[in-house]
Nucleic acid binder design. Structure first.
Lengths: 147, 147
DNA sequence: TGACTCATGTCAGTATTCTGACATAGCCTG
DNA sequence: CAGGCTATGTCAGAATACTGACATGAGTCA
């Protein structure tokens, strides 16, 4: 590698992408032994916190399209991690729920992922940890209002 | 959508992913009219800042595999945005450079992307902008040392 | 009631990225 | 010099996510 940081390291966008990439790599690393991908885990975690979420809601929560989430859900259902009613109770929305097996699988994953999060925060002081939340929330808000 | 934020909004990992996703969406939005993807732009920007970068170095800088970067480079070379020598001057490394056309194309994209970055920072005070850099760099560093 | 709009679930095809594998070049150590 | 180790470029196949499209159900409004 030549020399680092002519201008890139002064770009917050690049830094954000770099951090996100590092987080993804670290998560994949701890989830792989459990036979789980990041999206896989995200889906289960979302369902644990808000049982009955629909396919589209899960997709938004995991930052993928509803089509992608649909194929994941079909696999998770086939393997017995989640259940969906055959027919929609109301409208077309199929509320999804974790099975006991899904819950057990999630528990191990949560421990692993939490360790990554702890590591990520380990270099930050208390005020900086609070600052991280505030700053990221501000960025998200600013990026989403009119382009 | 049910209710937001039982626990997810208190997870810095989730927030980081959310911010990164919002940034990606915003960048795709301004780059699409220019017929450019984010990875496409990243590659050109890297080459502008450090001419002569190899395929593998570009891949690391854009956070993709060298195989993915290779197919992108082949397309960019075919379309006349970059050039690579037919034979390696030393070893197997093929130094890549922007063509005038690539430079022109990048200029427009840089303006568009910079506007996104400005928007992202618009809600932050000066100290918070400095804090953002320091915090993200700390996270990256912590995530990369031994898992 | 009927038309319009929006959101959902799902199917099909496409595109992009990744994993696995191979040959080769440079580095370094004995 | 020989061997091992690492990094590179590249090819091929698999996995993953996306775009486009369709039918259906809910909500709104005249």
């Amino acid at each position: 590698m030549s020399q680092d940081g002519v201008d890139l390291k002064t770009s917050l966008g690049y830094l954000l992408k770099e951090a996100s990439s590092a987080l993804r790599v670290a998560m994949e690393e701890v989830l792989r032994p459990l036979g789980m991908t990041v999206t896989h885990y995200s889906c289960l975690e979302l369902l644990a916190q808000r049982p009955g979420l629909s396919n589209s809601e899960l997709a938004r929560g995991a930052f993928v399209t509803r089509q992608s989430m649909n194929v994941l859900l079909q696999a998770l259902e086939r393997d017995g991690y989640v259940t969906r009613p055959a027919a929609a109770p109301v409208g077309k929305v199929l509320p999804t729920r974790l099975t006991p097996r899904g819950r057990r699988s999630l528990e191990k994953a949560t421990v692993a992922v939490r360790s990554v999060e702890v590591r990520m925060l380990s270099g930050l002081t208390g005020p900086d940890q609070d600052g991280a939340f505030r700053i990221l929330q501000s960025m998200i808000h600013s990026l989403r209002e009119g382009g």
